[in-house]
Each structure stands twice: as C-alpha cells, then as structure tokens.
C-alpha cells in the first residue's frame, strides 16, 4: 500500500476507468437483449425461421418475420468475400515478405495500410458508381450479390494481408535459413516451412475477418440491391441482416423494432463467438509451442 494519499486516489480512478471500459460490452449486450425480449416473447424465436416472408409492418393482415433470406444473404456475401479475399490477402502478405525487393515492399505496405483505412461508405459509393454499372453491363440489374462480394473482399483484404504478414514475421528466421541451406526453393520454403509454422496466426486472421465481414453494413447496403430474397445466382440482389437494420430502423415501431434488435443480437452473438474461437485457437497453439 502506497503511503501517498494521491496515489490511492489515482489508482482508484484508473481502476474505475478500467472497470467502466470492461463493462461497456456488457451494457451493449444487456440493452440488445432487453430490447429483443418483447419480440422473442411475442413472436417467439421459431417464427423468425418459419414465417412465410419478411413483412414486419404490412398495411393489412398479420405481420410476418422471416429472417432466413437476410441470414442467407449475410452468409453468402461473407463466404464469397472470404473466398476472394483470403488468397489475395495471403498472396499480398507473401509478396510483401518473400518476393518484393525492399523498396517496393515498403511502398506496397503503405498501399495496404492506406487501403485498410478507407471508410466503408467510400467503398460503397465507389462500388455504386463503378462496380455496379460494370456488373450491370454483363447481367442486369448490377446491384447484386456479386457486387457485394467484390466490394467486401476489397475491404477485408488489407487486414487479412497485414495480420498474415504479422504471422509470417514471427516465424523464426532460422527455419527459413535452414530451408535455404537444404537447397529448398522460395515457393517450397513458403509452402513447406513458413505456412505450416504460421498456420495458427493465419487462421486467427481469417476468423477475425469473418467477423468483420459479417458485421459490415454501409458498403453492402449500397451495392447489394437490398431485395429480400434467397438469391438463385450471384447476379441477383440480396439484403443482409446489417442492411436490413440500417434500412428499416428509421421507421420501425414495436414489434418490428424489437425484431431488428433480435437480428442485432444474432450478429453480436456470432461475432463474439468468432472472437472467442480465435482466442482459444491462438492459446491452444501457444500451449503446443
């Protein structure tokens, strides 16, 4: 115990700051749950999957709350974006660390960092004025699942690249030198030595980006077309869970509003699950080291 009174005040204050910061996530969860409870009581969790359609506030007749098209939309956009961004991001990280001459590497890293900082609304706007017309010229209507996948892939790619690069960085230099001493070529070293030992870091990168892609709102809202349907091809418009919240929250009244909070809660649960999974994976890896 410190003899100074100011010290006790200081440490008390700092502890308060830490506790408040730690509690924010609990308050967020608490409010989402409490706003979702009316819908979960009135509508029940099953109707979100079994109702005939998403008509939360019809002019006549009964409201229906089928979230399945939006869930499918979110999952397909995310899966597509990951399928596109993972190889490109990994390739970028390999280029940065193993292929680029030092000067080019520095410039390329700057580009990736700047790309990571571009706001999602700018990605969305750019997608709307360039990518959507481009896809429209191949297959109408342009604002589609494919446009969402492309924009989202560009958005998550820089972080995939930066986190994979960090994972490559911790691979012991001796491994690479040993591989070179054995006469392994560049690609054989990457495939046989670097990737296996950086595997857990790479997995963590991909899991965290999955969370980011699931929760992305503005860009997908602006390029996906936002029609509530289960898409039959990549050229059809879709609406994601996040876009649904952004579009309808402005005028939603209960129980519609509460139903939107249910979809927010669903997103929060998914993302929290992914964060915990990433943590468990990296911890298990640390233990095995």
């Amino acid at each position: 115990m410190s003899p100074y009174r100011t010290d006790r005040i200081l440490i008390g204050t700092l502890r308060c700051a830490a506790v408040v910061s730690g509690l924010i996530v609990a308050v967020v969860a608490l409010f989402l749950v409490s706003e979702s409870v009316p819908a979960l009581r009135q509508i029940g969790p099953y109707r979100f999957f079994t109702d005939s359609a998403w008509h939360p506030a019809p002019h006549s007749g009964e409201s229906t709350f089928n979230l399945v098209p939006m869930i499918v939309g979110t999952l397909t956009v995310t899966a597509g974006a990951l399928a596109l961004a993972t190889p490109l991001g990994l390739g970028s990280a390999m280029f940065l660390r193993f292929y680029a001459p030092p000067k080019l590497g520095v410039i390329y890293r700057k580009i990736i960092e700047l790309l990571a900082g571009i706001p999602s609304v700018v990605f969305g706007f750019w997608g709307l004025v360039t990518i959507v017309p481009l896809i429209n010229s191949i297959h109408a209507p342009g604002a589609s699942l494919l446009a969402g996948i492309c924009i989202l892939a560009i958005m998550i790619l820089p972080t995939v690249a930066l986190v994979s690069d960090a994972a490559f960085e911790v691979v012991p230099k001796e491994y690479v030198k040993g591989a070179a001493a054995l006469g392994l070529s560049r690609w054989a070293t990457i495939r046989g030595v670097v990737i296996p030992s950086a595997k857990s870091g790479l997995f963590t990168a991909i899991i965290l980006q999955t969370g980011r892609a699931l929760g992305e709102t503005m860009a997908v809202l602006m390029v996906c077309g936002n029609v509530v349907q289960v898409p039959k091809s990549v050229f059809e418009p879709v609406r994601t869970l996040t876009a649904n919240i952004a579009l309808e929250m402005a005028y939603a009244l209960d129980p519609h509003r509460s139903a939107l909070f249910v979809s927010g809660l669903l997103l929060l649960t998914l993302v929290a699950g992914l964060v915990l999974l990433a943590d468990v994976l990296s911890r298990r890896y640390e233990c095995s080291q």
Partner: peptide, 12 residues
C-alpha cells in the same frame, strides 16, 4: 471484454 468490443459490428 475489450477484445469482443473491438469486434462488435458498427451497426450493432
């Protein structure tokens, strides 16, 4: 809790 907070989507 800070790790989870960092992952919470902005719309949430």
């Amino acid at each position: 809790s800070l790790d989870i907070l960092a992952g919470v989507p902005s719309i949430v």
